[in-house]
Design a protein around this nucleic acid. Structure first.
Lengths: 114, 114
DNA sequence: GCTTCATTTGGCATAATAGCCAAATGTTTT
DNA sequence: AAAACATTTGGCTATTATGCCAAATGAAGC
């Protein structure tokens, strides 16, 4: 069978994969942004609802949401004066649970029930 | 039933939980560090083995490893002149797979097989 | 004890991030 | 069209992250 790509190409692809993963993790790697994602877990919310629960300037929250949107984690739609955000990748929630498990494992030294 | 903690306490605890999660994500949110974690997936490795695969200064790799250790993701042990690193939380690997799924969902618009 | 090898640490320059305020945008109401 | 409301954007400063080089540490061999 003919090789589909050169080694240089696989290297680049692997690099790209790592970059994508890292970008997604970086977008989530902030307490406020994690909280925002959690809030969107059940239902979409407008910015005003979200800012109520955060101790930060509205503009700061807006920038966090914008960052999450650029990372493809959330999406937004306008309805009248308000803008509603929703979670684009529900999968992430499972991931966050997994992180929790990993964190618990750190202290208890047992991991994933093993 | 008497409440176990005040609202201020639950708030603090929730805040702590978010901080811990964010810290773990932040530690992983770098292409080189993700690569290092992947390398440790199958077996422990010494620093010299790890530096071979990275296009960065040895000291840079060492600092990445140190950061991962502080986050509780890896642990190290000395054997003679070399220092071996190993993955402390194998759970993380499942998480990374989950991230991959989420990333694919971003483009294909289908998520987790749904 | 001095040299060599493997790794870490300190120091520094550069870049990226976070958060506030003020100004701008877009929408609805009057 | 002006005022009010919801949100975003620009600009600024402070903090943090990244990565290299050089120096320090620690173990092994001579």
């Amino acid at each position: 069978m003919k090789p589909v790509m050169t080694q240089a190409q696989t290297h680049t692809q692997s690099q790209e994969r790592l970059n994508s993963r890292a970008a997604l993790l970086k977008a989530l790697a902030h307490p406020t942004r994690l909280w925002l994602v959690e809030q969107l877990e059940q239902q979409e919310r407008c910015v005003c609802e979200l800012t109520d629960g955060v101790d930060a300037d509205i503009s700061t929250v807006s920038k966090h949401l914008s960052l999450l949107r650029q990372a493809g984690i959330v999406a937004s739609r306008r309805e009248g004066k308000q803008i509603y955000y929703r979670l684009e990748t529900p999968c992430l929630l499972g991931m966050l649970t997994c992180i929790e498990t990993a964190l618990e494992a750190q202290t208890s030294k047992s991991c994933c029930g093993r």
